[in-house]
Design a protein around this nucleic acid. Structure first.
Length: 325
DNA sequence: AAGTCGGACAACCGCGTCAGA
DNA sequence: CTCTGACGCGGTTGTCCGACT
């Protein structure tokens, strides 16, 4: 029992569009508009699925589309909005005239994600990796911390591993693999003989990086206040090997002046590192309101929020939510 | 010159949502 | 209220092309 296909796949052409097909579709839409995509290919004389026609039109042929490189300000906007909306590409694209969700998605996946992780910022949470590590370390005992680190950083394990292992950590050294228990020193010294996977290295590397650098390795009760203090230190000074001591926040993308490069390090203004909190609250607020189409439409129309010179990220969370819902 | 690799972009797929019957 | 078809969205895959070996 599958879903009914949107068209007879045997009779439709797939793959790259030819200039001739583009012309047919463009001229048909110019005369008749885009009502009923299912009928468009038939009426336009195209052996294409209606869905394929819609995609071709919205992502490529539409006359108002902007082709070519993304500007710095467009990239800044994407990063800012992504920290609030996550992968809601259509919402993000709605704030970028002439750009489609597909454009934004592709640009994010091929460029911006790498740019951020190259800066030591987790593109998912928009927090520095060191913050994530420290948060994990302060709240969880080793087994859970390792699992959470795996979950939180799984997408970027290669980047994280690279960052962590710039300071050589000997993962190959000999050590038994007996039950480690809750003894933190065991985790520090633990060497996986058999588990050579990247994730395993990250689990250990993250713990080691935080705690070795703080030089305050607790002896037997690793997750007491001493450990918390260590992790706090780690967070405050970004002690991960290649991390400069900086706090990232989206407000840096709004700065003006010589040092206002969107990719420069910046000092957090306090309220500005709460993008994720704002996001959570926004989502809650939307859920309260049912996130219905009217709300969504209204949000789409609020481009002035993002286009104004006001720094969105310095707004208190409530103001942000109230202005959008 | 040929082969390989990786980045960038286009296109497809499947699911969720919505509007109309 | 329920059902159904159309549309929109986000994730994934495919293809092209230039750089590198």
């Amino acid at each position: 029992m599958g879903r009914i296909p949107c068209c007879e796949k045997d009779n439709v052409k797939r793959g790259q569009w030819t200039p001739e097909e583009d012309n047919k579709l463009s001229s048909y839409i110019a005369q008749n508009g885009t009502r009923n995509w299912r009928l468009i290919p038939k009426n336009a004389g195209l052996q294409r699925c209606g869905k394929s026609c819609r995609l071709r039109w919205t992502n490529y042929l539409r006359p108002d589309l902007k082709h070519g490189q993304f500007s710095d300000s467009e990239e800044q906007t994407i990063v800012k909005l992504h920290s609030v909306f996550g992968n809601r590409w259509s919402l993000i694209a709605a704030q970028l005239p002439g750009r489609t969700d597909n454009d934004v998605k592709n640009h994010w996946n091929t460029k911006l994600k790498k740019k951020l992780s190259g800066m030591g910022i987790d593109p998912v949470t928009h927090k520095p990796f060191s913050h994530l590590m420290a948060e994990i370390a302060t709240t969880l005992a080793p087994p859970q911390a390792a699992h959470l680190a795996e979950a939180a950083l799984g997408c970027f394990k290669d980047e994280v591993l690279h960052l962590l292992t710039k300071k050589p950590i000997n993962f190959q050294a000999q050590h038994s693999t007996e039950v480690l228990g809750n003894d933190f020193t065991n985790y520090i010294n633990y060497r996986p003989e058999e588990k050579e996977g990247t994730v395993e290295k990250i689990k250990l590397g993250s713990l080691k990086a935080i705690c070795e650098e703080t030089k305050t390795i607790p002896s037997n009760k690793p997750w007491d206040s001493t450990a918390a203090a260590s992790a706090s230190f780690a967070m405050q000074y970004s002690v991960l090997p290649t991390m400069p001591p900086f706090n990232y926040c989206p407000a840096s993308f709004c700065n003006k002046g010589d040092d206002a490069s969107p990719w420069s390090q910046s000092v957090c203004t306090g309220s500005t590192c709460t993008a994720m909190d704002q996001q959570s609250q926004l989502h809650e607020k939307l859920e309260e309101n049912g996130d219905d189409s009217e709300t969504t439409k209204e949000m789409r129309n609020l481009s002035n929020i993002f286009n104004s010179d006001s720094v969105l990220w310095d707004l208190p969370a409530d103001d942000l939510i109230n202005s959008m819902v």
